[in-house]
């Protein structure tokens, strides 16, 4: 297949599976799941340092920033203002100018506040950050975000942590036809076939967290996700056969006995 690496804003990504680091049993399980997934991109949240208990271990002791690209996110932010502050702190703490911008609109659904996301993205792009926005599966929103300078968009497959899979593949297809930047499906996938479907649609990558961390065996599921992405990507590049209503024999009729 040659080099099929994904490039965003000049940064080359070896893996098309991006993973989160939340909700694992402990840091060791996080590390093993990430290794099994074969990813080179991990997303992390930005939180207050525990001042009282300094003995607590740091995630980055387990995930080597030299080995993985660290993608800070603004998860848990409900306003453009908080998301901007969090993203700017991440950039200062950091490692890179990459940020996964999330502005959540509602605690029950965790759906993105697209309007606030657009507002925050404008400010952060001006500050020189590479903004990868989490958004609804809305082609118009995707276009607006790309028009202001986002080098990729991250539409949801389904609500965060729901595991429902791609609920609207047609919208994802329209987003891909609407914008000329990479489309990364973010949130809501549940298992390896969901990932394969996203990749078969032609998505450029998939970001997930709970689908691995909430599996009975996260390490096995991480490996399954790796193959899901590879299978889906290959199938997309191979170009699937058209769907037909009636049967078409695959064996020749000629030479059959009794003819």
């Amino acid at each position: 297949m040659g080099n099929d690496n994904l490039v965003i804003a000049g940064i080359e990504f070896r893996s098309r599976l991006w993973v989160g680091t939340g909700k694992y049993k402990d840091f060791d399980e996080t590390r093993r799941a990430i290794e099994a997934s074969g990813t080179d991109v991990v997303t992390v949240s930005v939180r207050r340092v525990n001042i009282i208990d300094r003995s607590r271990e740091n995630l980055l002791d387990y995930i080597d920033p030299k080995k993985y690209k660290i993608l800070p996110n603004t998860a848990g932010c409900y306003t453009a203002r908080d998301a901007i502050r969090t993203a700017m702190l991440a950039a200062e703490a950091g490692i890179s100018k990459l940020v996964k911008l999330e502005v959540i609109g509602d605690e029950k659904t965790l759906f993105p506040d697209n309007e606030a996301t657009l507002e925050a993205a404008k400010v952060l792009l001006k500050e020189g950050l590479i903004v990868l926005p989490y958004m609804s599966d809305d082609p118009i929103m995707a276009k607006k975000l790309v028009d202001i300078g986002c080098p990729a968009v991250m539409p949801l497959a389904a609500p965060i942590g729901s595991g429902l899979g791609i609920r609207n593949p047609y919208n994802i297809r329209i987003i891909m036809e609407t914008v000329k930047v990479p489309v990364i499906v973010d949130a809501g996938v549940g298992t390896a076939s969901d990932v394969a479907i996203a990749m078969e649609l032609g998505c450029d990558a998939v970001l997930l967290n709970t689908a691995i961390s909430a599996a009975k065996d996260p390490i096995k599921m991480a490996e399954a996700m790796k193959f899901g992405v590879i299978a889906g990507r290959l199938a997309y590049k191979a170009g699937r056969m058209p769907k037909k209503l009636y049967a078409t024999a695959s064996s020749p009729i000629e030479g059959m006995i009794g003819n």
Binding site: T21, R47, R48, L110
Partner: peptide, 20 residues
């Protein structure tokens, strides 16, 4: 003063932890 660092998190659901 806010002092922050990177913590586990991804497509973070309910337990959003500390906010600024």
């Amino acid at each position: 003063l806010e002092v922050v660092s990177f913590m586990g998190g991804g497509d973070l659901s309910a337990d959003c932890g500390m906010r600024i």
